[in-house]
């Protein structure tokens, strides 16, 4: 439904987007995920037509939309700080897009009121139509912004850090709620976030961006289980990143020998990535890699353990209470360490 080809944009000598290409299918909910400065908001605004790229093209539904004005793109945009019209009531805010239509396209008053009512219901804002934005909570304002964008029945919904300004609890609820909304009305959506948990929980596909380029595109499972680059590894979830020496396909870390997936027997320097929950701890034995437990912390249902390898390197391990008890993990204890899964990136 959306085809982006070779998009580039510079702001005052700094490259915000570098040769970005991607495509978004109809009905998908896509997350643009990355740290600040990665270009995700710039990309979103270019999709909306609020910014212009220096080069490249955007096609929506097969037609070239690169120079199309936002109001002709039939999109809904939810701004980071909602941009609600502060002097209009909630109902007037939501109905605005319908009221400004000209001529025949403008529905009669009663119809507008009806649509506003049904959207209020959909967004669980019943009875709040007469209130003003300053009288609403953050989560309510967010839903009004969403309702306002949906009122004009756009073909594409774009959201800029929709939950950024909200409390953690409200964020979780609204995330779930957005997912459900999308499942109900099947609108194509793109949202920007820097919160990887949000992206993984809500989106059908995630576009991981860094410094103006795309690091990886894939489903949440794909990018978590098979990160394509060190950046993606580090950005999503916790990871142990250990510098190492590679010789003939084996990575040597002090005190830990790993066989890696590099088939061509390469040699050189590199970094090994191991997820904390992929580290297996067993009681100390003569064979296997030896390490000493440094710290054990109970975090709710799980347990986090720090172990120090014989070479001095510290590994973060995530495990369960049962494992802790089975192996007898406590500070000072010797353990045997193995990696169930590891990924090597050569320098």
């Amino acid at each position: 439904m959306i085809e982006v080809e070779n998009l580039s944009k510079r702001f005052r000598g700094f490259a915000a987007l570098q040769d970005i290409s991607l495509s978004i299918q109809e009905g998908e909910l896509v997350a643009l995920l990355g740290p600040s400065g990665s270009g995700k908001t710039t990309l979103l605004r270019i999709l909306a037509g609020l910014e212009q790229a220096d080069s490249g093209s955007v096609r929506i539904d097969g037609a070239d939309a690169t120079r199309l004005h936002p109001r002709d793109r039939k999109i809904g945009f939810v701004f980071q700080n909602y941009a609600l019209f502060r002097h209009m009531s909630v109902a007037d805010n939501i109905g605005f897009g319908l009221k400004v239509r000209k001529g025949a396209a403008r529905p009669p008053k009663a119809e507008i009121a009806r649509r506003v009512e049904s959207l209020l219901e959909l967004m669980q804002l019943d009875g709040l139509g007469g209130r003003y934005p300053s009288q609403l909570s953050g989560g309510q304002r967010q839903r009004v912004a969403l309702a306002r964008a949906l009122a004009v029945e756009p073909r594409l919904l774009l959201l800029d850090e929709p939950f950024g300004a909200l409390d953690a609890q409200v964020r979780k609820e609204l995330r779930r709620w957005l997912r459900k909304l999308h499942d109900d009305i099947h609108i194509t959506g793109v949202f920007v976030t820097h919160d990887q948990e949000e992206a993984l929980e809500v989106a059908d596909r995630v576009v991981v961006m860094n410094k103006g380029s795309i690091e990886q595109i894939g489903t949440p499972t794909e990018i978590y289980d098979h990160p394509a680059t060190p950046f993606v590894y580090r950005f999503l979830g916790n990871v142990n990143a250990i510098p190492c020496d590679v010789r003939a396909g084996k990575a040597r870390v002090d005190g830990l020998e790993l066989v890696c997936d590099e088939p061509n027997g390469a040699s050189g320097g590199g970094v090994v990535f191991i997820r904390p929950h992929d580290v297996a701890l067993e009681p100390a034995s003569d064979s296997g890699n030896h390490a000493v437990v440094r710290h054990v912390a109970v975090l709710g249902a799980g347990v986090r353990v720090e172990v120090v390898l014989s070479g001095g390197i510290v590994l973060d391990v995530e495990t369960t209470r049962e494992e802790r008890d089975r192996v007898g993990l406590r500070p000072g204890r010797g353990v045997s360490v193995a990696a169930r899964k590891a990924r090597l990136f050569l320098d």
Partner: peptide
């Protein structure tokens, strides 16, 4: 001409 800034507002 094509790259003249398209002003949104």
């Amino acid at each position: 001409i094509a790259r003249r800034p398209l002003r949104v507002i």
